[in-house]
Design a protein around this nucleic acid. Structure first.
Lengths: 346, 346
DNA sequence: ATGAAAGCGCTAACAT
DNA sequence: ATGTTAGCGCTTTCAT
């Protein structure tokens, strides 16, 4: 519990200079006589030496910490992304400073400021702020930034995105290949780019097959609130399904803009005695853990979440080391996950 | 992009000494002439000054960072805990360094070492190591440690625990109050304290009501692997249910040691055409998000996860500030969440 | 009320 | 190959 040893203590102990000790202990490529080096290492062990990286940082103006700002770690999507970030960062000897913005722009800015004070030089962020506002000034201030799931074209920052449109296309095409021609599209409000793009993929897929889009088959929640309280996607799925079922004929398949909504759809269908997939097929989007637990297991689209994090991490670390392999945007590809909720029409 | 301003730049700019500037900008209680103070603050704004907390830390030997070591942020339980930690830490001006140990003791030790090098003085940890081994030496080294969900009595560290036994008692009692007398208990292997304690709570509740425990009603998976591959709790729930259903009479209620297992139970029951809760009631433990989405919605026990994190955070920060309100152990209480999967027997 | 100066632990020119 | 020394940005005694 007495003061921790420094390189000076070690230097005294082996009768060498602090410089030499530093060279040995920081694995500098600088030549030191092997015997001396070994003696120093031994002394370090003996004195229970732990390097003080604060001292090093002050001198070198480099940190091994990367900041991660996301809306909420409680959202499984971000949890998976962060997991990917942390794992590769840790492998490279970097630490992760986690900041939740809670969808609050001011908090986000506050975190950015904190990170700057702590001399963090690199940030991975899923910003909720229109980037032209707050983020830019930090960029110019020497921050290296990698952006996740942003869908704003931007030239000053590296972006890791996911091809939602392709995803929508993939799942709709799958439905078409199974012989479906009357496919409803249900979604929460199209206020996010991701949902718009999925919808766009749906339209393009039908179009490519020469199937006309019937607007009566496109049901979008008008709002995600009800008397002030947010209504869950699960509930929205149920409501939209009720609306869909009001008039016959029913579609042979329903494509939901995400898994949660799809669960609502299936729940309502089952309640009404309609069998999935025998009567109506259902497809989701996200591949939540529960997609394979629900009955019948949900056919959906997988988004490589961990991988997004891993790539972001690698990219940022390269940026920090001035390895200039930085492309402006990386687009991750969707993957179809076939399970039991989609049936071929006979 | 030129070098960021330091207190020296400001000092020069207003013709004062760095000492005075420091006193103003670090909100020291030291008296400074108001006019000068204002001038300094203005200069700071003008020069776009950002304090360099590395410099401060080197001088003061204090950090505003707390380390969090958990097995995996991908596990919703830990995600919720971390969310609680981060929120209150952030409110108090602390940052969170997130480390996933991935259930790997060596990685955990590695993270501990890293944190020490980075001069982190406080750690919240859900350790997978028997604490007598690795953790202790760090404790003596000046680390303040708060432990989460550990269930090892230990005097040297603050523990935040959850009363699993009480939880088991609460849910079993609820079943009893609904008139059930033949209650099966299904669980994954009792290799974790949490499961043992839940089982213990189950036994105590039945005992308190004078209901004998029929060992034929206690089904524990013998292993959570099958030919090398881990088998999910969901699958275990299904298997155990199949076993339970082999001989009549069936119990009127099933208590599962967690929600995932309960989902497996319900799934298997429904597959066999047995209605929940009309034929058999089912209760879970955890209150996962899906407990209210599954049909019928699952009656279960809630564990205040965010709160655990918040408390851990507050406690650790007190510890770091030598506020000595530190009790050895805090025991969070379970809460019954009544939904639709449990029926009164008539 | 203000300033001068030392020093936190480390690294990196620059000697030797 | 090794040592001397300055200095990263800040706080804090101590002097004035």
């Amino acid at each position: 519990m007495n003061k921790p040893a420094t390189i000076y203590d070690i230097a005294k102990h082996v009768n060498a200079s602090p410089a030499t000790v530093s060279r040995v202990l920081s694995n500098s490529k600088y030549p030191v006589r092997p015997a001396l080096a070994e003696k120093i290492r031994e002394a370090a062990r003996e004195l229970n030496y732990t390097p003080n990286s604060i001292g090093r940082q002050l001198k070198t103006n480099k940190t091994s910490t990367i900041g991660v700002i996301i809306p909420s770690i409680t959202n499984p999507f971000y949890a998976a992304v962060v997991s990917g970030i942390e794992e590769t960062a840790s492998e490279q000897g970097y630490q992760v400073l986690l900041c939740n913005s809670q969808n609050n722009p001011e908090l986000e800015l506050q975190h950015l400021k904190n990170l700057q004070e702590n001399q963090v030089k690199g940030v991975i962020i899923s910003s909720i702020i229109d980037k032209n506002d707050g983020l830019k000034q930090y960029l110019s201030h020497g921050f290296k930034v990698v952006t996740i799931d942003q869908n704003h074209p931007d030239t000053d920052t590296c972006q890791i995105n996911f091809d939602y449109a392709k995803g929508g296309h993939v799942i709709a095409s799958h439905l078409l290949e199974q012989g479906h021609r009357d496919i409803a599209f249900l979604s929460a409000p199209l206020d996010r780019p991701s949902r718009q793009l999925i919808y766009q993929g749906y339209k393009e897929a039908l179009h490519a097959r020469g199937v006309d889009i019937d607007q009566a088959r496109v049901l979008i929640s008008s709002t995600s609130e009800e008397s002030g309280k947010p209504i869950t996607e699960f509930q929205q799925g149920k409501q939209l399904t009720r609306r869909l079922l009001q008039s016959k004929p029913w579609p042979t398949a329903i494509m939901a803009s995400n898994d949660m909504l799809a669960f609502g759809v299936m729940n309502e269908l089952v309640n009404k005695g309609i069998r999935v997939p025998e009567d109506i097929s259902v497809a989701g989007f996200d591949n939540l853990e529960f997609a394979e637990i629900v009955a019948p297991a949900l056919t959906t689209v997988e988004q490589p979440k961990q991988e997004m994090g891993a790539i972001a991490s690698r990219l940022l670390i390269d940026l920090l080391n001035d390895v200039d392999n930085a492309p402006g945007e990386i687009m991750l590809q969707p993957q179809l996950v076939e399970r039991k909720s989609v049936h071929a029409v006979t």
